[in-house]
Amino acid sequence: MSRIKAPGDLPDLVKKAFNAARANGDIHYFPTQVTILTAGSIPFQLRFSPALANKPKGPPPDPAAKSHKPFDPFENPPPALRVADVGPSHFVVLNKFAVVPEHFILATTAFKLQTHLLEPSDLEATLSCIRAYEGHEDGLFAFFNSGEHSGASQPHRHIQLLPIARMKDGLDKTSSWDVLTDRLSERQTPFAAFTEKIHLEMQGSDLHEAYIRLYRRAVNAWARFTGSRVQQVASEGEAVMSYNMAMTKTTLALVPRVAEGVKITSDDGHVLGNLALNGTLLAGTALVKSELEWEALRKDAAGLVNALRGIGLPHSDSIDAEEEQEKTKI
C-alpha cells in the first residue's frame, strides 16, 4: 500500500475551502468569458479575463530584512488557503489567483526546486489526488510547468490541479471540448507531445519511470531541434530544457518548450499583445488578458495555431522520436 494518500473527501474539502476563502476575500477569483476555437482538428478553449491585467502583486521585500529572499507563497501559506496534507511530503493549498473555480496546488512540504526533475513522491502524490476525484463529476487535470519557457512563476516545486467540471464552466452542454491530454494520440497537434498510458493503481516508482522515459524522448527531440548537445539525460537534478507535464487518470504527457508565448498581431502587422501559454495547453485551453487579443483570436484562429506552433517543437519531432524509440527495441 502506498504511504502517500490524499484524503478521500478531497473534492469536498477543496470546494468548501474555495467557497469560504472567496467569501472572506482570502483569494482572488477572476471570472472569464469563453469561446471554442478550432486549432487544426482540436477544439481549443480560449478564455478572456480583463481583470487579470490588474492582478495584485506579491508583497514587496521588507527593507528591514537582513536578506531579500523572494517571497515563497508555499513556505507558510495562510490557514484559510491550506486544505490538507498528502502524505509527509506534500500538501494541498488553494491557488490564490484563480481563473478556474476550485483550482488548487500540490506543493512540496520541504523546499524543492521547480526546475529540478520530479521525484517518485511528486508523481505518486499527484495521482493520489486524481484518484480522490475518481467518480466525482469529470475528474481532475494536473499540470506542471518547469523552466523559463514553460509559464512557471514560482521556484518552490508545485503541481497545479483543476477539476475538469469547473474547466467546462461557461461552455454549452453540447460543446465538443474535452481534455486534450487524453486525446493526444488521436489528434495531430501543432506541437510535439509525448505520452504514455497510466492507470490509477500505479505506484510512484512506475509513474516515475514512465515520466523519465517521456522526458528522455522529449530531450532528444529538443536537442535535435535546437542543435543542443546533451551528453547524458539524467533522471534527477536540473532539467536541461523547459517543458510542461500533464496527468489525467489515464495519460501522462510531456511537451518540450522553446518559448513561453508569441506575439499576436493585427492584419496590418501591429502587435496587439503576447499570448503566453503554460501547462494548461495540454488541456486544450489558453487565456488572454487583453480585449484586443481576445477579438483578434476569435476573428482568426490561425493566430492560436501559430502560437501553439511557436512555443514547442514541430509535431513531426514527436513522431520521429517515437520511431527512433521503436528502432532501439528491435
Rank of each mutant, 00 (worst) to 15 (best):
K168C: 10
D169R: 12
L162E: 12
W177A: 12
Q160T: 09
E137G: 05
F141P: 03
D178L: 02
K173G: 13
W177C: 06
L171M: 07
G135E: 09
E124A: 15
Q154F: 15
D138L: 08
K168T: 06
S150G: 02
G170V: 05
L140W: 04
E137T: 11
L171I: 02
Q160H: 15
S175G: 05
D178N: 04
Q160M: 09
L162W: 14
S128Q: 12
Y133L: 02
D172K: 12
K173L: 10
T126V: 10
D138K: 10
L140C: 06
E124K: 06
H156W: 12
L171S: 01
Q154A: 13
S176K: 03
S128V: 11
A142N: 07
E124W: 07
G139F: 02
W177K: 10
G135P: 09
H149L: 06
F143P: 00
P155I: 06
L127S: 09
Q160P: 09
P163T: 01
I130W: 03
H149M: 08
A165C: 12
G147K: 08
G147V: 04
I130L: 11
H136S: 10
G170I: 07
V179H: 03
E137D: 11
Y133T: 01
A165K: 09
R157C: 07
S176I: 00
R131Y: 10
A142S: 14
F141I: 00
A125N: 10
R166P: 01
V179I: 15
L162P: 01
C129V: 14
P163R: 02
P155E: 01
G170W: 08
P163C: 02
L162C: 09
I130A: 04
F143I: 04
H158M: 09
M167E: 09
A165L: 07
H149Q: 14
R157E: 08
E137A: 14
G139S: 05
S150F: 01
Q160V: 11
A142R: 08
S128M: 11
S150D: 01
F144D: 02
G139I: 05
S146T: 12
M167K: 09
